[in-house]
Design a protein around this nucleic acid. Structure first.
Lengths: 211, 211, 211, 211
DNA sequence: AAGTAAACGAGACGGTACGTCGTGTCTTCCG
DNA sequence: CGGAAGACACGACGTACCGTCTCGTTTACTT
């Protein structure tokens, strides 16, 4: 049960033996290819096995179910959030938001994420992995940039950074899921500008305009 | 055999005669009950039929598939967005946002929405119904209140109302899906305050604080 | 839509409704055909289902496993033991023995019986059915003829009729299983003659030659 | 489960490898033990390998398949047919028949023989080994005794010795397979007496009582 | 009131996919 | 360097549902 390997190193000193790394790669790439061709629901473990010239047991040996397999296949395809310090917080944040828009607006995520979230309802481990490996990881990187903005005074001390990021991601995901669009660069810039001007804060009470 | 049916036959939304309204009700309520007990994925048409003491064909006669049935079952349970003019736009908007938080944060939506969105990838009609009957309908009501706020000057003329609403809904849904929480009243109030202070706008370029 | 089903529904031996007798017939005949072509071990439920254009569940609905299905398929093919009184016990018995030789020497039985007996080791119900429906039924018919021979004085009163029949069947089966031959008519006649001359008896102690 | 090797592999002083022999013995004895515990069908090569703390390849190196392994394991357990000349043909033959009854009535044979015969249908080599190493070998020994009886005049010159032996073996096997019993000593004696009094013969035509 | 046609419960039907198991071969790694 | 350990491709197993279909049986509308 549970995932057995996360990374695909050449040799795993104490983990499971995976003789044929080639098989693993073939499975993951076949999964991605068929996912694009068939969508998540018509994707089947048996079909992937056949297409990848692999026994079903070989798939089940490494992944507990279709969701875990697809999660692994998609995860490695996502772009990294840029965290480099370029001196200008506004521009750093815009870059972060553009990457988030790219991620949450990508067809792959649109195709896969709802299915995974749905399956996660009956599979707590999948839910945990989704949250930790997909969501939180990107968020942790984004927080680095926003924290720096707070330090620089580009954002108030009591900015609810988590709310800011979830709000942005939420908007992007919402648009992606229900309208099949991703935020264009201008909209991202407007969104960032508006939020920087007056972000949600952690302290209660009415809030004056940021400044 | 005692007399059972009291209600007279009417047409259902597909325009077909539905002799046994009681059966329809039994199907919908059984669906909701089993949905709570089993989750979406373990829910089956056959199981609902058996539990509701109804033939499978009776279900298929009214709904094309599990998703359509569940959509109907859940739709009627959702609260209405309050659009009444109470004189205070801020309070009206907070009431709207609280209702949205209740909807998107409810366990039922959390359980069902990702599955429906997922299924919609292979069923355009389902996607359309999801958007029109679940999303847009609430949004249309919310827009009424926000439009009134613009008229009153509580929001700038070029406020991107759609972005505001999708951003709020996105945040609520995001939190619900990945963290299984719904926004508490204080957070909603903070969110509304921050957004009113500086909402996203449709015009491009840097934006000064709203005022 | 052309009418297809002519036969009325009946109950199968499991007491379940079997709507489509046509399917049942198709399954049984396909089983026999593939049994001849592949042998028992290479026969598979899935293969039969595919070949018979039938769902696997339809087979499992009526038969617990491959053995039960094959038993049913083969059972109905076996010839009846002739029990008619033709006045001459010797000739009646020879006719019985020839039928037994035909049964136990037939390729179908040779192919199937060891497999069924083997499976019966782990399936008591199959063992019971084998004994009752294949073995005992033929034996009961044969006993009629031998009992008549005892009445007529063609066999001694203390003839161990069961031993006689099992000995004959055993010889035929033994030759069939290990040498793939069935007893020819002359050998059957010789066997019967020898046994009639001095059959095994139920009373203990040394036996003088019959006569 | 956690049983590891106790005995260490060593070479004996003559330079012969002990490891192979030890493994071979462990495989055969494990096979017999698990055969009794699980029956033939639930027995698996993988299971035997694990239980015997042996690689599967080590088994396949010596035996082509499960049937061949089991045949070897069982073969060595069977008692020898007594062929010694004790002066009294009747008693010699009874001893032979008792041994045959012991062999064909033993639980081990009952458990294994049908499975082997069944597998032999698709494996001619197995069929040959079954016939030669199990059946014919015992039969050859038995023939020695019966031939001596013919020489002594205890049986007619034209006695169909093969038929006699197959008939006896057939009866014993038949009773074992379908009724799970072995012939008791008295029945064996009765059977031998009856057959000696009038055995099947190779010459055709009606036969007078032997004498 | 009797006749008729639809909708009904029940569930069998042909299928697809599941996740597990056993086969016989092949590879890795340990002693 | 031989062997245990077990990964591998393959394919059968028996189960769960799917969406369609066919049964008889109500039920409600016609005549």
């Amino acid at each position: 049960m549970g995932q057995k390997r996360i990374l695909s190193p050449v040799s795993d000193e104490r983990g499971q033996r995976m003789r044929d790394l080639e098989a693993r790669e073939r499975i993951l790439s076949t999964t991605l290819r068929m996912l694009g061709a068939l969508g998540y629901s018509r994707l089947s473990i048996g079909g992937i096995a056949q297409e990848a010239a692999v026994g079903k047991a070989t798939i089940y040996r490494s992944w507990a179910n279709k969701a875990a397999l697809v999660l692994d296949a998609v995860r490695v395809q996502l772009p990294e959030v840029p965290v480099a310090d370029i001196g200008d917080s506004k521009e750093e944040i815009v870059a972060v938001a553009e990457t988030l828009a790219e991620i949450y607006g990508s067809p792959k995520v649109r195709l896969v994420l709802p299915a995974l979230v749905s399956d996660a309802a009956a599979d707590p481990d999948l839910g945990r992995r989704l949250r930790e490996e997909l969501i939180e990881q990107r968020k942790k990187q984004s927080v680095v940039v926003l924290d720096r903005a707070v330090e620089r005074g580009a954002l108030p001390q009591d900015t609810d950074i988590s709310a800011v990021l979830d709000m942005w991601a939420g908007l992007m995901l919402f648009r992606s899921l229900f309208y099949s669009v991703s935020l264009d660069k201008q909209s991202v810039r407007n969104l960032v500008s508006a939020t920087l001007a007056s972000p949600p804060r952690t302290t209660s009470g009415d809030q004056p305009p940021a400044g």
